[in-house]
Amino acid sequence: MDTFLTFALTGVVLFSLGLQEVLARPGVLRMLIAVNVMGSGTLLFFVSLAHRHADGPDPVPHALALTGIVVTLAATAAGLALARGLHRLRAEGSGGRVEGGRVEGGRSQGAGYERGRSESGRDEQGRADR
């Protein structure tokens, strides 16, 4: 096995492992970890392709993978911020349930930012749910 095949295969394995775990929906943070494993697998596969050339690697997959790392980071950071935001609102105890990523309850239309509404959309929501 040469370097290309070894890492291309590893990429496939990592992608499938991550996919399996995301689909099993073990909770938000674990799903984000799994997505990152999937991402590493994808990029590993992509970059291993650049290694099939005798006189030095093909720089294009390297550059694309760099972009891929940044994009995955951005999405992960946004996901973690959302997870924490959701957690904080739940910790405030405004009722409703979140299970396996499915949100139930909650009736707000984001009233707080619609013109002429009271600014206490969240409180109203809390009361309605109780």
Binding site: A8, L49, A50, P57, D58, P61
Partner: peptide, 10 residues
């Protein structure tokens, strides 16, 4: 099916 030797855009 991926060719084992290829230059891509190198």
């Amino acid at each position: 099916e991926v060719p084992p030797r290829a230059a891509g855009l190198a």
